[in-house]
Amino acid sequence: ALELWLNKATDPSVSEQDWAAIQNFCEQVNTDPNGPTHAPWLLAHKIQSPQEREALHALTVLETCVNHCGEKFHGEVAKFRFLNELIKVLSPKYLGSWTTDKVKGRVIEMLFSWTVWFPEDIKIRDAYQMLKKQGIVKQDPKLPADRILPPPSPRPRSS
Protein backbone atom coordinates (compact mmCIF):
# COMPACT_ATOMS: atom_id res chain seq x y z
CA ALA A 1 0.00 0.00 0.00
CA LEU A 2 2.92 2.36 0.74
CA GLU A 3 4.28 1.96 -2.77
CA LEU A 4 0.85 2.25 -4.29
CA TRP A 5 0.15 5.62 -2.69
CA LEU A 6 3.64 6.87 -3.39
CA ASN A 7 3.33 5.94 -7.07
CA LYS A 8 0.10 7.89 -7.17
CA ALA A 9 1.56 10.87 -5.29
CA THR A 10 4.60 11.06 -7.59
CA ASP A 11 2.93 10.22 -10.90
CA PRO A 12 5.04 12.16 -13.45
CA SER A 13 2.14 12.38 -15.91
CA VAL A 14 0.23 14.60 -13.47
CA SER A 15 1.47 18.18 -13.18
CA GLU A 16 -0.45 19.14 -10.05
CA GLN A 17 0.46 17.67 -6.69
CA ASP A 18 -2.04 14.99 -5.62
CA TRP A 19 -2.56 16.03 -1.97
CA ALA A 20 -5.07 13.26 -1.29
CA ALA A 21 -2.50 10.65 -2.34
CA ILE A 22 0.16 12.36 -0.19
CA GLN A 23 -2.18 12.30 2.79
CA ASN A 24 -2.95 8.63 2.23
CA PHE A 25 0.77 7.88 1.95
CA CYS A 26 1.42 9.71 5.24
CA GLU A 27 -1.37 7.79 6.95
CA GLN A 28 0.04 4.52 5.61
CA VAL A 29 3.49 5.46 6.95
CA ASN A 30 1.92 5.95 10.36
CA THR A 31 -0.15 2.75 10.38
CA ASP A 32 2.30 0.31 8.76
CA PRO A 33 4.68 -0.93 11.50
CA ASN A 34 7.59 -0.76 9.05
CA GLY A 35 6.33 2.46 7.47
CA PRO A 36 8.67 4.95 9.14
CA THR A 37 11.79 2.89 8.31
CA HIS A 38 10.75 1.72 4.84
CA ALA A 39 9.14 4.89 3.44
CA PRO A 40 12.31 7.06 3.35
CA TRP A 41 13.97 4.54 1.00
CA LEU A 42 10.99 4.44 -1.32
CA LEU A 43 11.11 8.24 -1.37
CA ALA A 44 14.87 8.34 -2.01
CA HIS A 45 14.39 6.11 -5.03
CA LYS A 46 11.75 8.49 -6.44
CA ILE A 47 13.83 11.58 -5.66
CA GLN A 48 16.66 10.06 -7.72
CA SER A 49 14.33 9.55 -10.68
CA PRO A 50 15.62 10.85 -14.03
CA GLN A 51 12.12 12.26 -14.55
CA GLU A 52 12.16 15.76 -13.11
CA ARG A 53 8.47 15.89 -12.27
CA GLU A 54 8.57 12.58 -10.42
CA ALA A 55 11.55 13.79 -8.38
CA LEU A 56 9.88 17.13 -7.57
CA HIS A 57 6.65 15.43 -6.50
CA ALA A 58 8.67 13.05 -4.31
CA LEU A 59 10.42 15.99 -2.64
CA THR A 60 7.05 17.50 -1.74
CA VAL A 61 5.96 14.14 -0.30
CA LEU A 62 9.17 13.91 1.73
CA GLU A 63 8.76 17.41 3.10
CA THR A 64 5.13 16.74 4.05
CA CYS A 65 6.07 13.47 5.76
CA VAL A 66 8.90 15.08 7.74
CA ASN A 67 6.39 17.58 9.07
CA HIS A 68 3.51 15.18 9.72
CA CYS A 69 4.67 11.56 10.02
CA GLY A 70 6.02 11.64 13.55
CA GLU A 71 9.32 11.12 15.30
CA LYS A 72 10.33 7.75 13.91
CA PHE A 73 10.12 8.84 10.28
CA HIS A 74 11.87 12.09 11.15
CA GLY A 75 14.61 10.12 12.93
CA GLU A 76 15.26 7.99 9.84
CA VAL A 77 15.48 11.02 7.58
CA ALA A 78 17.92 12.71 9.95
CA LYS A 79 20.45 9.85 9.63
CA PHE A 80 23.46 10.13 7.32
CA ARG A 81 22.28 6.91 5.71
CA PHE A 82 19.25 8.73 4.29
CA LEU A 83 20.85 12.17 3.93
CA ASN A 84 23.48 10.51 1.71
CA GLU A 85 20.73 9.67 -0.77
CA LEU A 86 19.90 13.38 -1.05
CA ILE A 87 23.61 14.25 -1.30
CA LYS A 88 23.93 11.81 -4.23
CA VAL A 89 21.35 13.85 -6.15
CA LEU A 90 23.53 16.96 -5.76
CA SER A 91 27.09 15.65 -6.00
CA PRO A 92 28.74 15.45 -9.46
CA LYS A 93 30.54 12.36 -8.14
CA TYR A 94 27.21 10.54 -7.99
CA LEU A 95 24.02 11.66 -9.80
CA GLY A 96 24.65 15.42 -9.74
CA SER A 97 25.60 15.66 -13.41
CA TRP A 98 22.21 14.26 -14.45
CA THR A 99 20.05 16.11 -11.96
CA THR A 100 18.20 19.18 -13.21
CA ASP A 101 18.85 22.56 -11.55
CA LYS A 102 15.26 22.70 -10.38
CA VAL A 103 15.54 19.42 -8.45
CA LYS A 104 18.95 20.41 -7.04
CA GLY A 105 17.53 23.76 -5.94
CA ARG A 106 14.63 22.09 -4.15
CA VAL A 107 16.92 19.59 -2.36
CA ILE A 108 19.25 22.38 -1.20
CA GLU A 109 16.31 24.52 -0.08
CA MET A 110 14.83 21.61 1.87
CA LEU A 111 18.11 20.67 3.58
CA PHE A 112 18.72 24.29 4.51
CA SER A 113 15.20 24.73 5.89
CA TRP A 114 15.70 21.62 8.05
CA THR A 115 18.90 23.11 9.49
CA VAL A 116 16.79 26.14 10.46
CA TRP A 117 13.75 24.22 11.73
CA PHE A 118 15.54 21.33 13.42
CA PRO A 119 18.80 22.71 14.85
CA GLU A 120 18.99 19.72 17.23
CA ASP A 121 19.52 17.37 14.25
CA ILE A 122 23.30 17.61 14.12
CA LYS A 123 23.64 15.20 11.19
CA ILE A 124 21.49 17.39 8.95
CA ARG A 125 23.68 20.35 9.82
CA ASP A 126 26.87 18.34 9.22
CA ALA A 127 25.62 17.13 5.83
CA TYR A 128 24.69 20.67 4.80
CA GLN A 129 28.03 22.08 5.98
CA MET A 130 29.86 19.36 4.03
CA LEU A 131 27.96 20.34 0.86
CA LYS A 132 29.02 23.94 1.42
CA LYS A 133 32.64 22.95 2.03
CA GLN A 134 32.61 20.95 -1.20
CA GLY A 135 31.28 23.98 -3.08
CA ILE A 136 28.13 22.05 -4.02
CA VAL A 137 26.07 24.59 -2.07
CA LYS A 138 27.45 28.00 -2.98
CA GLN A 139 25.26 30.06 -0.66
CA ASP A 140 22.32 29.52 1.65
CA PRO A 141 19.08 29.70 -0.34
CA LYS A 142 16.58 32.39 0.50
CA LEU A 143 13.63 30.65 2.08
CA PRO A 144 10.21 31.87 0.97
CA ALA A 145 8.42 33.81 3.73
CA ASP A 146 6.01 30.94 4.41
CA ARG A 147 8.89 28.56 5.07
CA ILE A 148 10.85 30.61 7.57
CA LEU A 149 8.54 29.63 10.43
CA PRO A 150 8.89 26.04 11.59
CA PRO A 151 6.20 23.56 10.56
CA PRO A 152 3.53 22.50 13.06
CA SER A 153 4.90 20.08 15.64
CA PRO A 154 4.49 16.43 14.79
CA ARG A 155 1.35 14.74 16.04
CA PRO A 156 1.74 12.80 19.27
CA ARG A 157 2.42 9.11 18.70
CA SER A 158 -0.91 8.05 20.15
CA SER A 159 -3.02 9.91 17.59
Binding site: K79, F80, R81, L83, N84, I87, K88, S91, K93, Y94, K123, D126, A127, M130, Q134
Partner: peptide
Protein backbone atom coordinates in the same frame (compact mmCIF):
# COMPACT_ATOMS: atom_id res chain seq x y z
CA UNK B 1 23.81 -2.01 21.82
CA UNK B 2 22.01 -2.35 18.51
CA UNK B 3 21.45 1.37 18.43
CA UNK B 4 25.07 2.05 19.32
CA UNK B 5 26.45 -0.07 16.51
CA UNK B 6 23.96 1.47 14.09
CA UNK B 7 25.22 4.88 15.18
CA UNK B 8 28.81 3.78 14.49
CA UNK B 9 27.87 2.58 11.00
CA UNK B 10 26.14 5.81 10.07
CA UNK B 11 28.57 7.86 8.01
CA UNK B 12 28.46 10.68 5.52
CA UNK B 13 29.09 9.67 1.93
CA UNK B 14 32.78 9.90 0.94
CA UNK B 15 33.25 12.89 -1.34
Amino acid sequence: LGEESEERDDHLLPM
